[in-house]
């Protein structure tokens, strides 16, 4: 199996006034295509930061990031935006749907960056909303949906362009148990049935159990030891 994510000696610092805050220290990580990885760790350990780097919305201070075959740290602003549109789907803790757009219109957004015709876009959006189980809610606005439904719309938006990589930052963090289960089941299905590589940040050990690999981040360092026990459960 080929590697879809290759993080090589990546460091990331932020500057607050003139004070350097080192968030990630010399991190290296490889993720195979088709993997479902859960990233755990205490608050402030740098999980979101690492995820953002891999998703190409943030840039490393040092190091190399090869994601979906592209050296993304070397891309220019505009090329990186194009790469994001084509290669990665983003799922957020608070869904981040555009409130003034319907479920259909939210899911259609990433397709507006493609060359698809209106009719093709319509088909893609409807099919994708069907996959996440919201075929009957396509003209609802976000505020007319439950949290779980909103997150499913967000997932549909993330996968509608059929990216190879799906990143999710605490996708169940704002959901009740039952909705969280639904979302996790959906993510599992996307991984198995649709062969999406998924990288999911979570605080919840229960959620992490649904992934195949769990990695831990502690104060900006990836701890050694990969938990493979999930593989047994999934085989």
């Amino acid at each position: 199996m080929s590697e879809i994510i290759e993080v090589q000696n990546v460091s990331k610092s932020y500057w607050r006034d003139s004070l350097e805050i080192s968030v990630l220290h010399n991190i290296s990580l490889k993720v195979n295509e088709g993997e479902f990885l859960a990233l755990m760790g205490p608050s402030g350990s740098g999980k979101t930061t690492l995820l953002n780097l891999i998703a190409g919305i943030d840039r490393p201070t040092k190091g190399k990031l090869i994601v979906a075959g592209t050296d993304i740290a070397a891309l220019g602003e505009s090329a990186l935006a194009k790469w994001r549109a084509a290669s990665v789907g983003f799922v957020f803790q608070f869904y981040n749907l555009i409130p003034v757009l319907t479920a259909f219109e939210n899911v259609e957004l990433p397709l507006l960056l493609t060359k698809l015709s209106k009719a093709e876009r319509r088909k893609h959006v409807e099919d994708t909303l069907e996959i996440v189980g919201l075929g009957d809610r396509i003209h609802h606005y976000p505020k007319q949906l439950s949290g779980g439904q909103e997150q499913r719309v967000a997932i549909a938006r993330a996968i509608v362009t059929d990216p190879v990589l799906l990143v999710a930052d605490e996708p169940t963090g704002d959901l009740d148990r039952a909705s969280a289960e639904e979302i996790l089941t959906l993510m599992e299905r996307l991984n198995k049935e649709f062969k999406k590589t998924i990288m999911m940040v979570t605080h919840d050990p229960h959620a992490a159990q649904r992934a195949r690999i769990i990695r831990h981040l502690e104060k900006g360092d990836l701890t050694e030891g990969v938990e493979y026990e999930n593989i047994k459960a999934n085989i």
Binding site: A55, E77, A81, A85, F90, I98
Partner: peptide, 9 residues
Amino acid sequence: GTLRSLGFK
């Protein structure tokens, strides 16, 4: 931020 992360320039 969301629109930008989706790839809008």
